[in-house]
Write a protein that binds this DNA or RNA. Structure first.
Lengths: 353, 353
DNA sequence: TTCCGCTCAGAAAACGTTATCTGACAGCCT
DNA sequence: AGGCTGTCAGATAACGTTTTCTGAGCGGAA
C-alpha cells in the first residue's frame, strides 16, 4: 500500500488517485478540497481511491500553486526568555483557532542572523511577527519592502510601513519609581538590559524621567537580559549606595535576588527590588517579586489581530500600545532609615535589627 | 524598480531576469546557484539584472522543484517550559551551522493537536524532532510512516522505526533518593508530572525502585508540569508526613518551595526538596535548589546529529540515552529528627525550635 | 424541431523553479 | 580536410497542484 517493491516508498500523487478512481485529476482536486461535485458516486470513488493509496497531498506543491502557505512566521530573539514564550502563547492560541499555523524561529539575539532568518522565513509565510527585533533600522526597512505583511512588537518604526504593537513601559516604570519614592527611597539603581534592546531604552527613559520628576537619584549599570547578569552586576549598585533596585526584567531581578541572598542583604528589609515583565516564577520567588506586569499574552493576541487585518485589508500600518502596571508583592518595603515602623510584612531572614 | 504602476508590487521572476540579461533562464539559474558558467560576461549580466529587478527567488517554487525544503521541524509540548527551550538551544546552535533552518511549533500539551501539527509540518520539512511527544502510540506509528526521518526525544518507541534519544532519569532519581536516604530521610513524597508524560512514568519508576531498594516509604500526588501545580499539591504530601519531597521538575519544585515559604516550613531545615532538570533559575532560588541535572543542550545536539545521519544514510533507527546526575545545592539537609547536628548550612528563617 | 444556455466533469494551462536534453561550435586527431 | 569528441548555453521537460478553459449532454423555449 503506497510502497513499491524496492522498499523505497514512492509517494502517491493526485494523478495516481485519479487513475485509480477513473476520474480526472480536476475531480480529485475538487473532491479533496470539498468543492461541489454533483455526482456523489464520483465523490465516493475518489475518497476510496485516496484512502487506498494512502494519498496525502503535497503541501509544498499546493502552497506553490496557490501562492500562499497558510503559515505565519514569528521571529524571537531568545526562546529561552519567558517573556517571549508568553507572547507566543497568546499568538498561538488565537492563530490556532483559524486555519493558519505558527512557525517560530529563534535568532539567538544576533542582529545579522535575525535579518537573514527573516528573509528566509518570509518566503515561506503569509505574514510575520517580529518580536522585539534587534536588527538595525536599515534592515527593518528592508523587511518593510518584503511582500508580506509584517508586525513589529516592542520597537517603534517611525515612518516605516510596518504594523507596530508594543508595551508602554513608561507608565509601569513611573509607577514603580513612585512606589519606591513613597516608601521613602531616594536613591535607586537600574540593572540595564542589552544595548541593542529598544525596550531597554524605553524603560531606562521612563525610569530616569520619573525619578527626575520626584527628585530621586539614579545609578545605572549595564547588565543584560539573563539572571547571571543581574547576579554579577548587582554589587555595582550596592557600592553606589542605592536602597532600591529596578531590573530590566524579572530574570535579571532573579539574579540580583540571589546575589543579595549570598551577600546577606535582606530583601526587602535592607533593599527593595523591582522586576519587569511579571514572568510566572516572579510570584513564586522568595520573596515574591514586586514587578511591572506586562500583558504578554495580550501582546501576542493583538499582534495576530493586527496581522490578520493587514492580510485582509491590504496595507494598513497602524500602531498600538498596551499598558504596563506595577504589581506590588513582597520584595519592596519602606526604606529602613526613614520609616522604621512595620519593616516589611515578612522581612528577609536576617533583617538588621 | 520591481513595482508596476498600480502600486501592487509584481514580483520579478527568473524569466524577467533572463529577459533583462538577454540570456536563458537556465543560465540565470546556473549563475544564481553558483554552478560553473564559462562566460564571465554572462555572470556579470545576470547579477546586474537580478540586482536591478530586485529579484529574490521564490523559495516555495524552489523547494517544490527540488523536492526538499532545507527546513527542520521541531515539535514541543510547551514552549513556556524552560526544559524544552534549552533542548531547542542545543538543536538550534548546531543546525544553524549547516544550511538548514529550524521551525518550531508548540502543541500546547494537546495530543490531538500534536499529531495534526506533526503531519502538517512534516509536509514542509526534510526532517523532524519530536520533543517528549504526548501523542498515543498509534499516532506515533503513523508518524513513523511519514516519508521523512523523525527523531523522538524522551520517549521510547520500542519496535517503531524512529530514532530515539532520551534521558536516563533512573540514575539521577536513584542518586537523589540515595542522597535523601543518607541524610536520614525515610519517607519522601513525589509531586508527579502530567499523566501523558512518558518521562514522568520513568522518573516515578526510578524513584519507587530506588526507594524500595533502601527501604524508604514513598507518597505520591499528581501535580503537573507547572509551578502552580506544585504550589497546590504540596500539602497532600505534608499530610502524609514526608520529610523530603521530589518534584517531577524544577518548575513544580518552585511552586512547592513557594508554598512551603507560605506555610513557614523551613527548607531545608524542616523539609528537603529536590527538583529535576536543573533549569537556570534553580541555582538562583532561595534556597538554591538541589536537583537532577539533565544535559538539555546535549539532548538537542544529539538529536540533530542522529537526524542528520538518518537524512544522509537513509533509514537508520537507533537509540541513545544520556545520563542525568544529581546536583546538590542547598534545598536538602539532614532529616531534623535523626541528625540534629548542623541542621542546614543556612536554614529557613523560622526553623521550629 | 431547432437552437440557446446551463451544468458539470474532463482537458489543459499555469505557477517558478531546477534538471535534463539538444544542438552549435571549437579543437583535435587521423 | 573530414570527422569525432567535448564544452557550453539555450530549449524544454518535468515537479504536483489548482484554476481556467472546453465541450458534451440535456432541458426548455421559440
Amino acid at each position: 500500500m503506497g510502497r513499491n517493491v524496492s522498499g523505497a516508498a514512492k509517494r502517491a500523487t493526485i494523478i495516481d488517485v485519479a487513475r485509480q478512481a477513473r476520474v480526472s485529476i480536476s475531480t480529485v482536486s475538487r473532491v479533496l478540497n470539498e468543492r461541489p461535485v454533483a455526482d456523489q458516486e464520483l465523490v465516493v470513488r475518489v475518497r476510496a481511491a485516496a484512502d487506498e493509496l494512502g494519498y496525502r497531498p503535497n503541501a509544498v506543491a499546493r502552497d506553490f500553486r496557490r501562492g500562499r502557505t497558510t503559515s505565519i512566521g514569528v521571529v524571537v530573539p531568545d526562546l529561552a526568555n519567558p517573556f517571549f514564550t508568553h507572547v507566543l502563547k497568546g499568538l498561538a492560541n488565537d492563530v490556532r483557532a483559524g486555519e493558519h499555523r505558527l512557525l517560530v524561529v529563534d535568532s539567538g539575539e544576533d542582529p545579522e542572523e535575525e535579518i537573514q532568518l527573516v528573509e528566509q522565513l518570509a518566503e515561506r509565510c503569509d505574514g510575520m511577527v517580529l518580536c522585539s527585533p534587534r536588527m538595525s533600522r536599515a534592515h527593518l526597512q528592508a523587511v518593510a519592502g518584503l511582500d508580506i505583511p509584517v508586525i513589529c512588537t516592542n520597537r517603534s518604526v517611525a515612518g516605516l510601513p510596518l504594523g507596530t504593537i508594543g508595551v508602554d513601559s513608561a507608565v509601569g516604570m513611573a509607577q514603580a519609581v513612585t512606589h519606591l519614592y513613597e516608601l521613602g527611597h531616594r536613591h535607586v539603581g537600574y540593572l540595564a538590559g542589552p544595548q541593542s534592546s529598544w525596550s531597554d531604552a524605553r524603560r531606562r527613559e521612563g525610569l530616569t524621567s520619573a525619578a527626575a520628576a520626584c527628585g530621586m537619584e539614579v545609578s545605572v549599570t549595564v547588565a543584560g537580559s539573563a539572571s547571571d547578569a543581574g547576579f554579577t552586576r548587582l554589587p555595582d549598585l550596592l557600592r553606589e549606595g542605592v536602597t532600591g533596585v529596578l531590573a530590566f526584567n524579572d530574570l535579571v531581578a532573579v539574579g540580583a535576588l540571589a546575589r543579595l541572598r549570598e551577600l546577606e542583604v535582606a530583601v526587602p528589609g535592607d533593599l527593595s527590588v523591582v522586576g519587569f515583565d511579571d514572568i510566572p516564577v516572579a510570584a513564586f520567588l522568595g520573596p515574591p517579586l514586586t514587578t511591572v506586569s506586562v500583558p504578554k499574552e495580550d501582546l501576542g493576541r493583538a499582534a495576530w489581530a493586527m496581522l490578520r487585518q493587514q492580510m485582509q485589508d491590504g496595507e494598513v500600518a497602524s500602531e498600538q500600545w498596551l499598558p504596563s502596571a506595577l504589581v506590588v508583592r513582597q520584595s519592596t518595603a519602606p526604606h529602613p532609615k526613614r520609616l522604621q515602623s512595620g519593616a516589611g510584612r515578612r522581612d528577609g531572614r536576617r533583617a538588621a535589627r
